[in-house]
């Protein structure tokens, strides 16, 4: 079919002009277009290595003449939807001072990685904070870092009369040291914040 519309002919003429003057440009443009739709990277992304993950905290409370009690918090999916599994093995004896020790694990790896040693090594960059209420009366630090500031991997917990109580254990990374013992003053990054409900009887 031959179109003899003057408008169309004009357009054809203009196209022809355009072709000669801009052939190079169009080649480049088409080349780019080809490149951009043909570069297909089928490589699978690498999983992210999450660093310094702490999944588990085991707290052992011992006192002479009393049953050893362990408090545990295990959160295998980190920031995932599953809440940490918190277990308390038994009840504490009243008016007793327990010696407490803390163990930290990364159980996403097999065998589980012991983070306790790492914290002990970088003791000046870490500190545990203890907050008690109810039938738990006080806590005290039983260890200190290289600078003589409290650390908290070992501590003492004193119970009061029978009843129920809570202990909140917080681990801060790079807190201000020394601090006034409050979380607000210490700052830093929270690695662990877990509270345990216990019974004293």
């Amino acid at each position: 079919m031959h179109i003899n519309n003057p408008k169309f002919n004009n357009m054809k003429k203009s196209f022809r002009q355009m072709k000669t003057t801009n052939l190079k440009f169009f080649t480049v443009l088409l080349g780019t277009a080809f490149l951009m739709f043909s570069c297909d990277n089928n490589d699978d992304p690498a999983p992210v290595d999450e660093e310094e993950v702490i999944t588990t905290m085991n707290v052992t409370l011992t006192a002479t003449g009393a049953t050893t009690v362990s408090l545990a918090s295990q959160d295998l999916d980190g920031d995932g939807p599953d809440a940490p599994v918190v277990t308390v093995s038994g009840s504490l004896a009243p008016n007793t001072t327990y010696a407490g020790s803390i163990e930290l694990l990364n159980e996403t790896e097999t065998p589980a990685e012991d983070i306790t040693a790492e914290v002990a090594e970088e003791d000046s960059e870490h500190q545990f904070f203890f907050d008690v209420s109810g039938a738990l009366t006080e806590t005290a630090y039983s260890d200190e870092d290289g600078d003589g500031n409290p650390l908290g991997l070992s501590f003492a917990l004193t119970t009061g009369d029978a009843g129920s109580g809570t202990i909140q254990i917080t681990l801060r990374h790079e807190p201000k040291k020394p601090n006034d013992g409050t979380l607000a003053d210490a700052g830093g990054e929270t690695d662990i914040a877990q509270s345990f409900s216990v019974t004293v009887e």
Partner: peptide, 9 residues
Amino acid sequence: VEFTIRGAF
């Protein structure tokens, strides 16, 4: 809210 070992968010 979701709970983690680092607290609740």
